[in-house]
């Protein structure tokens, strides 16, 4: 969303009302984005509150007012990730959609009912990076910022995560075949 640069500048200078105005313009996006990560209304509201607080405390560091939205949503996603990590929860995703995206880069078709199970067997870092990259379309450098890990580590998580996912799926098919 494009914001009035004058309002963004006022917010950068600590004007709480201008800042609130900007956040209200993004309110729907903030809510639905948070909801897509944390999966329930109460947590989404908590994340929005935390994001408003953290972003107001650090807005003086925003060097390019034009990127206000990008900067704000990065903070929001980081807060979602923190909340889920604290609770040891996985980022919610829609199975069919993640499947479609993984599928388009996969030679073999994956069946939906195996995916959730296979994904749940990966460690949380692999799970998170796969969901953020394939399902939420986040670039690797943003995932690295959110997870507070170097870009190289995220690439490794993705590579190894995919490999493990393939192995798990393969194992799951074989097991399934045995029983059918």
């Amino acid at each position: 969303m494009k914001h009035d640069i004058y309002t963004v500048k006022k917010a950068i200078n600590g004007d709480a009302r201008a800042f609130e105005e900007l956040l209200i313009l993004e309110e729907k996006m903030l809510y639905y984005k948070a909801l897509s990560y944390v999966g329930n209304k109460e947590d989404a509201l908590d994340v929005i509150q935390e994001t408003s607080c953290k972003s107001f405390l650090s807005i003086s560091q925003l060097r390019t007012p034009e990127y206000f939205s990008t900067w704000l949503f990065r903070i929001l996603i980081r807060e979602c990730y923190k909340l889920l990590k604290k609770r040891d929860q996985i980022i919610p995703y829609e199975e069919n959609e993640l499947l479609r995206r993984l599928d388009s880069k996969q030679e073999e078709d994956i069946e939906s009912f195996h995916l959730g199970e296979a994904l749940s067997k990966l460690n949380s870092s692999y799970q998170t990076s796969i969901i953020l990259f394939y399902y939420h379309d986040l670039p690797i450098n943003e995932i690295s910022e959110i997870m507070e890990k170097p870009v190289g580590t995220i690439k490794t998580y993705l590579r190894r995560g995919k490999k493990k996912l393939e192995n798990e799926l393969e194992r799951s098919y074989k097991l399934n075949e045995k029983f059918t």
Binding site: A16, F19, E20, L23, I24, E27, K28, L30, Y31, Y32, K41, L45, D46, I48, Q49, E50, T51, S52, C53, K54, F56, L57
Partner: peptide
């Protein structure tokens, strides 16, 4: 349903917290 009032309240609470 978009909980407009609650989202606004969360935004305001966050800003108040920061202030």
């Amino acid at each position: 349903e978009f909980p407009k009032e609650q989202v606004r309240s969360a935004i305001q609470q966050g800003i108040t917290q920061a202030e």
